[in-house]
């Protein structure tokens, strides 16, 4: 962890990303500029083809921009995927251990940290369960613990709750909010669910599609804890949805 911390966790400046070459060249992102504040819960919202996942790939360093810069200000970015993407040959604890092993942490300390991380996601004592023995929501919580095992200061989440039933998702929103408050981690949360974005985000960045551009940024001034079915969440969600439909509608012609 770095000693000097700026208030900006991620500085995205004039980023474009092209895939392929020649006639098959596709632009995923077009001149995206965005500052993510330290400790902020930022939601990236957009329809298909808005380059949400591409943007996360750039922030986590899995991918590099064609033009422009992505500066994570010496912070480490961890990633959590839609499909829990646990390694099926390892136990829950074993999965959480992988990032620790990759950084050469000693066995005794690893065990201790795994226990702590499992407790954080309320799965204490389930270290020996295998992914197929867990429910979808539990697998996502293991995945969350694994992302935290990377000691990430920035947590990138790619539609992490998209495949869950509404009730589980609702509870995991509460859980994620709690963990975010406790750890002070910066969260960049990709979703196509407007209410989810309003429920969770400090800010919502609306991206247009093909290529992805920043269409609008919404500040969510609703005090926490929020409920996804509260009137104020619904109210803002309506505004955002209207704007999202405008963006999507431009592709119909």
């Amino acid at each position: 962890m770095t000693a000097v911390r700026s208030d900006t966790a991620v500085r995205i400046d004039g980023v474009s990303r092209f895939f392929g070459s020649g006639a098959a060249r596709v632009q995923a992102l077009d001149n995206v500029s965005l500052d993510v504040r330290s400790g902020e819960f930022l939601c990236l919202l957009g329809a298909s083809g808005c380059g949400k996942s591409t943007l996360l790939g750039l922030i986590t360093g899995l991918d590099a921009p064609t033009t422009g810069t992505v500066d994570t200000t010496n912070r480490r970015a961890g990633m959590m995927f839609q499909d829990s993407a646990l390694l099926p040959w390892l136990t829950a604890g074993g999965n959480i251990e992988v990032p620790l092993r990759l950084r050469g942490i000693r066995r005794g300390e690893r065990r201790e940290r795994v226990e702590r991380l499992l407790a954080m996601v309320r799965l204490a004592g389930l270290a020996d369960k295998r992914p197929h023995e867990l429910s979808g929501g539990m697998r996502q919580r293991v995945s969350l613990a694994r992302a935290f095992a990377q000691e990430a200061d920035i947590l990138c989440m790619d539609e992490p709750f998209g495949a869950l039933d509404a009730m589980t998702r609702d509870l995991l929103h509460d859980e994620l909010e709690r963990i975010w408050r406790e750890t002070g981690v910066t969260v960049i949360f990709v979703t196509h669910d407007v209410r989810e974005a309003v429920r969770l985000g400090d800010r919502i960045v609306l991206l247009s599609s093909r290529p992805g551009r920043v269409a609008e940024v919404f500040d969510v001034d609703i005090e926490r804890p929020r409920r996804i079915d509260s009137a104020r969440v619904a109210e803002l969600a309506t505004v955002v949805t209207t704007r999202l439909r405008e963006e999507v509608g431009r592709h119909g012609h």
Binding site: R5, S38, G39, R75, D153, R181, E182, T183, P225
Partner: peptide, 29 residues
């Protein structure tokens, strides 16, 4: 873990209230 930032302490002070209100219910559910 990234607990050193100034924001996190502010959040932590709120966490107590938050947990008392809904944490138990969330836990049980």
């Amino acid at each position: 873990m990234a607990t050193e930032s100034g924001t996190s302490t502010r959040f932590r002070s709120q966490t107590a209230d938050f947990d008392a209100e809904t944490g138990l219910a969330v836990d049980a559910a």
